[in-house]
Design a protein around this nucleic acid. Sequence first.
DNA 1: TTGTACGCGTTATCAT
DNA 2: ATGATAACGCGTACAA
Lengths: 363, 363
Amino acid sequence: MMAAVNRKNAAPTIRAVASEAGVSVATVSAVINQTRFVSAETARRVNEAIKRSGYRPNRLARGLSTRETKTIGIVMPTILSPIAPLLLKSAADVLHEHGYAVLFSNTEMQTTWEEQAIELMFDSQVDGLLVVPASETLESLKLFSDARKPVVLLLHGLEGASGCDVIRSGNFRGSFDAVNHLIGQGARRIAVLALPLVSESEKDRMNGFRTGVLAAGRTLDPELMRVGAPSESGASEDHGYRETLRLMDLDDPPDAIFAMNQYMAIGSLSALKELGLRIPTDVALVGYDDLIWTKNLEPPMSVVAQQVELIGRMGATRLVHRLAENNHHSPAESVTVDTQLIIRASSNRDALTPSIDMENTPK
Amino acid sequence: MMAAVNRKNAAPTIRAVASEAGVSVATVSAVINQTRFVSAETARRVNEAIKRSGYRPNRLARGLSTRETKTIGIVMPTILSPIAPLLLKSAADVLHEHGYAVLFSNTEMQTTWEEQAIELMFDSQVDGLLVVPASETLESLKLFSDARKPVVLLLHGLEGASGCDVIRSGNFRGSFDAVNHLIGQGARRIAVLALPLVSESEKDRMNGFRTGVLAAGRTLDPELMRVGAPSESGASEDHGYRETLRLMDLDDPPDAIFAMNQYMAIGSLSALKELGLRIPTDVALVGYDDLIWTKNLEPPMSVVAQQVELIGRMGATRLVHRLAENNHHSPAESVTVDTQLIIRASSNRDALTPSIDMENTPK
DNA sequence: TTGTACGCGTTATCAT
DNA sequence: ATGATAACGCGTACAA
């Protein structure tokens, strides 16, 4: 009978390599992880055995033993939002560069699933977590704080998650700047198409808007504030379209519209054009997020742009550092990444004198 | 002295639960996995102990023992392509519904990294793999076939991967239909802006174009075939812009352009408008992939649309079924999901009589 | 410089 | 109906 070494078709284990090379498993482990000195000759034999057998270390077993999986979880409410792919990519790139695998979960805005996704990642023993929170609060994050595993929040904070690092996007300031810009362009009545005020981001955007209006000595007209758009892109666009028609049907319609996501902005644009209104002369328009095609619209649209890539990179980097330095105890850090107001024709009354629109011309 | 059960701050193990409930670990395991009968009373005690201790099964340990991780890997060349997010979402949704975790890797078009990513997933003991191949061949997939682990290819096949299921997109037919449509609109000289011919998708698209032209009794003019665009969106757009300017500068310029990705199509559109050409009268234009904003361009753009969501769902479903039925040996399946030609104003000369463009009007 | 043996947290195979 | 205990594949004290 043969030793229990060669179960048919099973992947070779470290033990198989050890016996193949005529050394102990400790030695094999040592040469793989460079964890202690091994004589050149022994190392050579081991490496040869590894190559011959096609041995590959089992990350599960390693993780079980070391209590480190070199895996981090990323959970976001929807990968279909226009900025999500870049956020995922920039974060994942950094993580991959540092040898981490990425466990991903799209929670599709479902509160319960968001919790479950986080639990799933915890159970998978991820070393840390990157979260774009959708809910107002996340019970399951307690699992991570109890286990002293680092969590970094992206885009906005979360109630009761004071222990987490947060890489915020400057939503308040972004809206505030947009309103100021519109006022500077002579807008008297500014309408807003806002998202449902659930997460910090949306609240901040709305507060920025309010503050901007009030700070300019204007009053807030509830009729001009349409809160609560569907999140799905097509539905959101329809919403922007319809609400704009209603707004322009008011006795005293707005002469500027600030849409807090880009799909609503597009719908709004369609409606304005359909009504035969001149943009920005009759109504100035500012949207949110600078997507690749935003500048190709007619007219090119002004937007509040978030530095999505930077946010993703910073979040991942923060996590990697915490993990590397066993930096689990230093106080949570909070950073806000500024937004940038990009002014294009849709809101630029100053530039109405015929001129070349540089933005619309590829280099 | 106390038993080695309560290492400070360590997560409770199945052993802790067992002793807490006064039963053996086998019993605890049994109630968790419903793997054998347990008396109601015992089960109650166990469940209580689980709840009290906050015990959560360790998926690593479970995977090590069962050789099933309930995790599948998804690797794609870039999440920034316009169709990638939907592909990821639709696949991940199906997988999540079936209790699978998703290990994700963006390989950013790097051939070596693509291999490494697949190896990483293999080492992580994923149960199966979903791949959008970027390279012409993938050595590392051999790891999976050797281990009899299922792999499903998405969007297009791969040389030497005959063992894998493939959910193809109908690229050949898509291009073929586009050309036929343009010819039907009276186009005499059709130019093409093609992607680098590396993966099967791009080759198929190009072949569809060639076949369409030849089948109509026309000849292929190399001057009208511009192959090799950058993959990054902005660069791709610039490329489309520049190549279009050159095309229109020919002695005998084209009267129709087929752009094989949507960014090139946008660049092309910019160039045509800048040249003061009428679309589709002077030049008809057809792009690829129906993005949310494609219909909002001026004029709304015709495209070859891929059924991305369906492809993602089918791929994930196929994988889940193979896993569920231990269906690892049935022959590889190959399916092609049809593309759909969506005709809009940019190529529709028939509809040039003034009329309402329904597509451009939200419901 | 290298080897032995135990632990990581489960599941699964025997017994009982 | 339940309990002991051997895998699973690896890292790592502790020995030698």
